[in-house]
């Protein structure tokens, strides 16, 4: 546990908590972006450069932008005096605490986890590319289809209803 990791973990966690508790939705989205950047930095710490950069490119560059646009389009950015939580939220938070307690207990007491850190694996981008084109080529194609379908589906769903239709 290096101090760098602890700092990054704290930033990531605080930003995630802020994203879930702040009143103003745009602030939530921005806090979420900070949390994703923190995660990307943790990936870099763990020698996963490619994934870290891809994380920033996709989450900060695309998903965060999508979310702030959706906030503006649904006028959720205007602060109202209503409660920000749904009725019965205590149960939700309680469940979350239980989940964390169970996973945390399992992580701390599991005998199967490797105790000392292994050699840092060296994976070059070339290796990732080769694997994508050989061993993982079917998932790659499936993801391609999925993204195309999502693209078309999102456009169709969000299209304005034509006049005359409900």
């Amino acid at each position: 546990m290096s101090p760098v990791f602890i700092i990054l973990a704290l930033v990531t966690f605080m930003a995630a908590a802020a994203a879930m508790t702040l009143r103003h939705l745009v602030h939530c989205a921005l806090a979420m972006a900070v949390s994703f950047v923190g995660l990307a930095a943790i990936y870099l710490q763990l020698n996963a450069q490619f994934v870290g950069f891809a994380q920033v490119l996709v989450y900060v560059g695309a998903v965060a932008i999508l979310i702030v646009f959706a906030i503006l389009l649904t006028r959720s950015g205007e602060v109202s005096n209503d409660s920000i939580v749904a009725p019965g939220w205590v149960w939700g938070v309680g469940m979350a605490v239980v989940i964390f307690a169970v996973i945390g207990w399992a992580v701390l007491n599991s005998p199967g986890l490797p105790v000392e850190a292994a050699e840092a694996p060296e994976v070059t981008v070339r290796q990732i590319g080769n694997d994508l084109m050989t061993r993982y080529v079917v998932p790659l194609e499936v993801v391609g289809c999925l993204l195309t379908a999502a693209l078309i589906g999102a456009v169709v769903i969000a299209l304005r209803d034509r006049e005359g239709e409900p």
Partner: peptide, 22 residues
């Protein structure tokens, strides 16, 4: 000298969009 230098460049470039929104 990043192995994925160009990806780093584009990731950094993409982050500016959020600043523009802010």
């Amino acid at each position: 000298d990043f192995d994925a230098g160009i990806l780093f460049f584009f990731a950094a470039g993409a982050s500016t969009e959020l600043a523009v929104f802010m």
